[in-house]
């Protein structure tokens, strides 16, 4: 039985499409104006936990074309997370917010600072800066060698670089709470219940911060201090720590 299961699993793996194939297929569908098919292919990619900047950018475009602005903005936000320097993705986000008359997300300075580079670049810089500095300061002593001036100079530089990454890491941590309202008129409820009183409605694509979680509900706060409980399926974080 176990052998049969493993065999079936192997077969499924063999028949599963490679991410690049799906990406190309979606691109062709977009070229043929078959946006529904393109969106389907790219959604499948994402549901299989295959993320790339290009796939998410194109997913945003496809979702926009099939009039799912919330999902489009989520995809572009994710694409911008992977490659914050891509001007096309930034332009699309600006375009979508302009069209949907959504406010620009109000980010603190640490959060804005953290958008300069992708999260993993910040982490790599922080790790290298910290451990490089520490190593240069400690290794000569531990290895019984004399600590040279250049050791100290480079250590100072490394630690300075590390210090510069700290606000970005803080901002990055805060950005982990950001999410997007997926459907239009997403209700923010007074209580995390099915029949909770609707306090306000968020338009599709608006960004909000998750402050609390309870069961199937998230307590989110949007621009203008609009806060309330929202169902998980109506709101999705750009990325989650879990």
């Amino acid at each position: 039985m176990k052998t049969l299961f493993l065999f079936l699993l192997a077969c499924a793996a063999a028949f599963a499409e490679a991410p690049d194939d799906r990406f190309e297929k979606a691109k062709r569908a977009m070229s043929d104006s078959d946006y529904g098919e393109a969106a389907y292919q790219l959604r499948e990619l994402v549901s299989e936990s295959n993320f790339s900047h290009g796939a998410l950018h194109n997913l945003g475009n496809a979702e926009w074309k099939v009039v799912r602005p919330g999902h489009a903005i989520l995809a572009w936000e994710r694409a911008a997370l992977i490659n914050p320097r891509d001007t096309n993705t930034a332009a699309n986000l600006a375009f979508a917010r302009h069209k949907a008359e959504l406010p620009s997300p109000a980010l603190s300075w640490t959060e804005s600072y953290s958008t300069w580079l992708s999260p993993n670049v910040w982490l790599a810089a922080a790790s290298l800066g910290f451990w490089g500095g520490v190593m240069l300061l400690t290794l000569p002593r531990l290895l019984g060698a004399r600590r040279a001036d250049w050791h100290q100079g480079i250590a100072a530089l490394s630690l300075t670089a590390f210090l510069f990454t700290i606000p970005a890491l803080f901002g990055l941590s805060r950005r982990g709470n950001l999410g997007v309202a997926l459907e239009d008129a997403t209700p923010l409820r007074l209580t995390p219940t099915r029949e909770g009183e609707e306090l306000v409605k968020l338009p599709a694509g608006e960004l909000a911060r998750v402050e609390k979680e309870r069961g199937n509900y998230l307590y989110v706060r949007a621009d203008g201090d609009r806060a309330g409980w929202v169902r998980r399926e109506e709101f999705e974080r750009i990325w989650s720590r879990r």
């Binding site: 209580t191 995390p192 219940t193 099915r194 029949e195 909770g196 009183e197």
Partner: peptide, 13 residues
């Protein structure tokens, strides 16, 4: 209707 919603919500919680 809001009252029903409130009672039901209390019950749900």
């Amino acid at each position: 209707r809001r009252s029903v919603g409130d009672f039901r919500s209390a019950c749900e919680l």
